Measured scan of single mutants.
Amino acid sequence: MAAAAAAGAGPEMVRGQVFDVGPRYTNLSYIGEGAYGMVCSAYDNVNKVRVAIKKISPFEHQTYCQRTLREIKILLRFRHENIIGINDIIRAPTIEQMKDVYIVQDLMETDLYKLLKTQHLSNDHICYFLYQILRGLKYIHSANVLHRDLKPSNLLLNTTCDLKICDFGLARVADPDHDHTGFLTEYVATRWYRAPEIMLNSKGYTKSIDIWSVGCILAEMLSNRPIFPGKHYLDQLNHILGILGSPSQEDLNCIINLKARNYLLSLPHKNKVPWNRLFPNADSKALDLLDKMLTFNPHKRIEVEQALAHPYLEQYYDPSDEPIAEAPFKFDMELDDLPKEKLKELIFEETARFQPGYRS
């Protein structure tokens, strides 16, 4: 834990890192770190609560700039109880001085990944967590956004079992017609939660990839272990087919990539493993919904509104309290091709509203 900075004593240090967030945020305490930044909790002297502050230093890398800009653009436009918001952003007053960006968010005690390492969940908890994931996802999908990296560590939890989806750095506007060349190379989302079509096709992607990830998360809540822990690309596919069985001819016809289709045709026939054999203690309604989410063919996979209306979630289902976005989200430009200098300018502009004396 960093010592509390005395008023006016300059930035606090946390594990050798400068955290320049005073005077409003003090009493910093280390939480963890990701690929390009550290997260601390801090005391907000204005709202009198502890908050989470993520320090991001992305400006050396085009990919990190892209992810940072995506996350900020999306989260500043989203407003939903099951999606983490941005409360404040701290950065230098000029673009030349801006080396880091500090993002202030609600402090959540833990995440689903940490929880599943230590606790076996009751059916009631599984049901409530799944409902909140789908409630947040309904809003995301209504904005025409794909999260693309749903996994237990991106689901934040607090002691009252509130759940918030975080990390929109890989999110995209849904565009089933656009052929994202190089899709697989830039697709760094965790393999275990990846839909089979991501490994088999490169053309376009749809909201059904997020539903697949939610199915993987439900299976993990039922058993405290990942359902498809593939060691590499082909191993991942083999794990999936080992449980779902061989795809039907109709399902194979959806695979545009001939090499991928021929690979699947070359494999020995596998039978589907019954879900109640894998999860003998699970609620039968939970397994019915799991089956509809972990469907090989993305066109037959359940959609988020149908999933919310499934009998497993009937005690929570309330369409009048499951809000959607006001308007579909649009990125003005494809960020993939922009140089990091341009992305830095866009991050600077996007964060201006939090600067003292800002006038829109």
Rank of each mutant, 00 (worst) to 15 (best):
Ala2Asn: 02
Ala6Pro: 05
Ala6Gly: 11
Ala6Ile: 14
Ala7Cys: 02
Glu12Met: 00
Arg15Asn: 06
Phe19Asp: 03
Phe19Pro: 08
Ser29Thr: 05
Ser29Asp: 00
Ser29Arg: 13
Gly32Cys: 14
Gly32Met: 00
Gly37Asn: 15
Val39Met: 07
Cys40Val: 08
Asp44Ser: 11
Asn45Cys: 11
Val46Arg: 08
Val46Leu: 12
Arg50Ile: 13
Val51Ser: 11
Ile56Asn: 15
Phe59Lys: 15
Glu60Cys: 05
His61Ile: 05
His61Gln: 14
Gln62Arg: 14
Leu69Val: 14
Ile72His: 06
Lys73Phe: 09
Lys73Ala: 11
Ile74Asp: 05
Leu76Tyr: 01
Arg77Lys: 03
Phe78Ala: 12
Phe78Asn: 11
Arg79Leu: 12
Asn82Met: 06
Ile83Thr: 00
Asn87Arg: 10
Asp88Ile: 01
Arg91Leu: 14
Ala92Tyr: 08
Pro93Leu: 09
Ile95Val: 04
Met98Lys: 15
Ile103Glu: 09
Gln105Arg: 14
Leu107Arg: 03
Met108Val: 00
Met108Gln: 00
Met108Trp: 03
Thr110Leu: 10
Asp111His: 02
Leu112Trp: 00
Leu112Ala: 08
Lys114His: 07
Thr118Ile: 11
Leu121Lys: 03
Leu121Pro: 05
Ser122Asn: 11
Ser122Met: 05
Asp124His: 04
His125Lys: 04
Tyr128His: 00
Leu130Tyr: 02
Tyr139His: 00
Ile140Asp: 02
Ala143Ile: 02
His147Arg: 07
His147Pro: 07
Arg148Cys: 05
Arg148Gln: 13
Lys151Asp: 10
Lys151Arg: 01
Leu157Asp: 12
Thr160Arg: 11
Thr160Val: 11
Asp162Tyr: 13
Leu163Cys: 09
Lys164Glu: 05
Lys164Thr: 07
Asp167Gly: 02
Asp167Phe: 03
Asp167Arg: 02
Leu170Arg: 04
Ala174Thr: 13
Asp175Val: 14
Asp175Gly: 08
Asp177Arg: 10
His178Trp: 10
Glu186Met: 02
Tyr187Cys: 08
Thr190Pro: 13
Arg191Cys: 05
Trp192Ile: 05
Arg194Lys: 13
Pro196Met: 02
Leu200His: 06
Asn201Val: 10
Gly204Val: 15
Thr206Tyr: 12
Ser208Arg: 11
Ser208His: 04
Asp210Tyr: 14
Trp212Lys: 10
Ser213Ile: 08
Val214Gln: 09
Cys216Trp: 03
Glu220Gly: 00
Met221Tyr: 05
Leu222Lys: 01
Phe228Cys: 01
Phe228Glu: 00
Phe228Pro: 00
His232Ile: 02
Leu234His: 03
Leu237Pro: 10
His239Pro: 10
Gly242Pro: 05
Ser248His: 10
Gln249Asp: 10
Glu250Val: 12
Asp251Val: 12
Asp251Thr: 04
Asn253Phe: 06
Cys254Val: 05
Leu258Ser: 07
Ala260Ile: 01
Ala260Gly: 09
Leu264Pro: 11
Leu264Lys: 04
Leu265Asn: 08
Leu267Tyr: 02
Pro268Phe: 01
Pro268Asn: 01
Lys270His: 10
Lys270Arg: 04
Asn271Ile: 15
Lys272Leu: 09
Val273Ala: 07
Asn276Trp: 03
Phe279Glu: 03
Phe279Lys: 06
Phe279Asp: 05
Asp283Thr: 02
Ser284Glu: 06
Lys285Asp: 08
Leu287Asp: 00
Asp288Lys: 05
Asp288Leu: 06
Leu289Ile: 08
Leu289Ser: 06
Asp291Val: 14
Thr295Leu: 10
Phe296His: 05
His299Met: 11
Lys300Asn: 15
Lys300Asp: 06
Arg301His: 01
Val304Lys: 03
Ala307Thr: 11
Leu308Glu: 01
Ala309Ser: 14
Ala309Lys: 08
Tyr312Asp: 03
Tyr312Glu: 01
Leu313Asp: 04
Leu313Gln: 14
Leu313Val: 05
Gln315Asp: 09
Tyr317Ile: 07
Tyr317Arg: 00
Tyr317Phe: 15
Asp318Asn: 14
Pro323Ile: 02
Ile324Pro: 02
Glu326Phe: 02
Ala327Val: 10
Pro328Leu: 11
Lys330His: 00
Phe331Tyr: 15
Asp332Pro: 05
Met333Asp: 14
Leu335Pro: 01
Leu335Arg: 12
Leu338Val: 06
Lys340His: 09
Leu346Arg: 00
Leu346Phe: 00
Ile347Glu: 12
Phe348Leu: 15
Glu349Ile: 06
Glu350Gln: 06
Phe354Lys: 07
Pro356Trp: 01
Pro356Val: 00
Gly357Asn: 05
Arg359Met: 15
